[in-house]
Design a protein around this nucleic acid. Structure first.
Length: 324
DNA sequence: AAAAGTCACAACCGCACATAC
DNA sequence: CGTATGTGCGGTTGTGACTTT
């Protein structure tokens, strides 16, 4: 960039070559992960110390899960910790063996971007879809996403497959979403499953879920969420894809739609909303194949069925549950 | 088949903090 | 004690691969 040459010559930027990695690894093996600046000053590489360190930390360090998608469990941990620590990626990464802060950061960033896009496509009034991927799929439909999302928090939202090994992670969301949605429809009336990972530092989270998981409204009322939830944050439920959006065009299906943990996760409000613990497969095998009894649009627990669709249009911040 | 959009990832930048001098 | 240097962290950007239309 700037004529910062000197010691090791002009600074090289951009993608690392295998030879550079080798040199860097040699250095680390010799002196340990430190003295990054000396790498350049010794003329070993035309990289800044910072760059060397970053390369090692993010790619060359042993035991990294390079190339592996975030598992459902990792995803959940991120969500939980992000809600707890905020954007302290390095801190969060400490809880995820093999993951770097950069990994976590990128992962979260992707989610946020997706959420942002979805938000734009979820107007509270009938609006034609327009440009994003979701839009494309909904091309000619008018999505009417009711603004009653504040009700959602109380709804159980198991995210069965979602990410995890398989294609999952985020990209797979597009495919998983529809599945989880379907499964969610059943989950809504499910009884909380035992916490699959109670040994994790997610106790508060899981306990909360268990506690909350009575009936949507009961739980909602019992925790007085109306006073806890930052509404603006709650509103835009991430519908993990067009499927969700599609479904949300109908109140009864809408419920099915926001079943996923991502609702909170993508909003970064995992700790604020008693989103149910996702019931994904423990071993992170997002077997999308488990899309058994799919396409069951009739959700017996779609309590919104009784509501006139337009009643949500002008919905204001969350009324107390009793008002519902 | 091509174009457009989206995603995931790698890498850089700037700032903050810690330590050495 | 003040300054310089090194390191760590979070934010941002660029890019290639993939998906959808």
């Amino acid at each position: 960039m700037q004529g910062k040459k000197d010691q090791g010559g002009p600074i090289r930027k951009g993608p690392w070559k295998a030879e550079e990695d080798e040199v860097l690894l040699t250095h680390v093996n010799k002196y340990g992960p430190r003295d990054w600046s000396s790498i350049r000053s010794k003329g070993l590489l035309q990289r800044t110390g910072k760059s060397c360190r970053l390369r090692w930390v993010n790619k060359l360090r042993p035991n990294l899960k390079n190339g592996c998608k975030f598992t459902a469990e990792e995803e959940r941990v991120v969500i939980e910790l992000q809600a707890q620590y905020g954007n302290k990626w390095a801190k969060i990464a400490l809880h995820l063996p093999g993951r770097t802060d950069n990994d976590v950061k990128n992962f979260w960033s992707s989610r946020q971007k997706r959420l942002a896009r979805i938000l734009q496509t979820s107007p509270s009034t009938t609006t034609p879809c327009s440009s994003t991927k979701s839009h494309k799929k909904n091309k000619n439909i008018s999505i009417k996403v009711p603004t009653f999302h504040h009700l959602v928090p109380a709804l159980e939202a198991p995210k069965f497959s979602s990410s995890s090994e398989e294609e999952s992670s985020l990209k797979a969301h597009q495919s998983c979403s529809s599945i989880s949605l379907i499964e969610n429809s059943a989950a809504i009336k499910m009884v909380p499953l035992p916490d699959p990972m109670n040994s994790k530092p997610l106790n508060s989270y899981t306990n909360m879920v268990k506690q909350e998981f009575t009936t949507p409204f009961e739980s909602y009322a019992s925790t007085d969420l109306s006073s806890e939830i930052a509404f603006p944050q709650v509103f835009p439920f991430s519908m993990e894809g067009q499927d969700l959006l599609d479904r949300t065009s109908e109140p009864s299906n809408f419920i099915d739609g926001f079943g996923s943990l991502d609702i909170a996760s993508e909003l970064g409000i995992g700790a604020q909303i008693p989103i149910g613990l996702p019931f994904f497969e423990p071993s992170g095998n997002c077997n999308i194949g488990t899309r058994d009894s799919i396409g069951n649009p009739t959700n017996p627990d779609s309590f919104f069925d009784d509501f006139p669709e337009d009643m949500f249009d002008d919905m204001q911040p969350p009324p107390s549950p009793s008002e519902l």
